[in-house]
């Protein structure tokens, strides 16, 4: 009996949502986020924007590592996570045209809302660490996806440990 109502509802919802853009869904890093504009040509033989161009997002994602992992229900940064984050901070400091969004994630073992809050704790821990290392806070923000965006789909610890992550997603750059 509500067909009329909901047809129009769906229409309006569609209109409302059309045009919205989604942040990088999987935290795989920002391919083509603009790193190519960095220092192209500074090093002969380096393909600008590739993983061996130290000013590229690809370098950040692959060589430094864009993510750190956490223990179950924890947001403490392990020594190796701190090491990754120190390098992230150095890179961000020497590539000041980039911004970063830190995405916090949880594995599926947990209730949805708690995991959202837990993902925020993890992302916040990363953000605070980067700021303490000298990255301007205004260049950083964070968002939690809770357990909504796993990258591994098995239901064992080998997957869960990859999903309990905070990913530093680089954006911007190329402000020539």
């Amino acid at each position: 009996m509500r067909i009329t109502t909901f047809t129009s509802l769906a229409l309006i919802a569609t209109i409302a949502i059309a045009g919205c853009t989604r942040a990088d869904r999987f935290g795989e890093g920002a391919d083509g986020a603009g790193g190519a504009g960095g220092m192209a040509g500074a090093n002969a033989g380096v393909v600008p924007g590739s993983a061996n161009d130290p000013t590229s997002a690809a370098y950040f994602n692959q060589t430094i590592g864009d993510r750190v992992l956490f223990a179950v229900d924890q947001s403490t940064l392990s020594p190796s996570a701190q090491d990754t984050l120190r390098q992230q901070a150095q890179w961000l400091t020497s590539n000041p045209s980039y911004q970063a969004v830190i995405e916090g994630h949880a594995d599926e073992q947990g209730t949805r809302e708690y995991n959202l809050a837990l993902g925020a704790r993890r992302a916040n821990a990363v953000m605070e660490y980067l700021v303490a290392q000298g990255v301007a806070e205004s260049r950083l923000r964070f968002v939690s996806y809770g357990k909504e965006r796993p990258i591994e789909v098995c239901s064992t610890e080998s997957c869960y440990m990859q999903n309990r992550r905070a990913v530093t997603v680089i954006a911007g750059g190329a402000l020539s």
Binding site: R2, L9, A10
Partner: peptide
């Protein structure tokens, strides 16, 4: 019965 969608799937929606 009588299922109707209220949003599309372009954004995550929860609870």
């Amino acid at each position: 019965a009588n299922l109707q969608y209220l949003t599309d799937s372009s954004s995550i929606v929860l609870a």
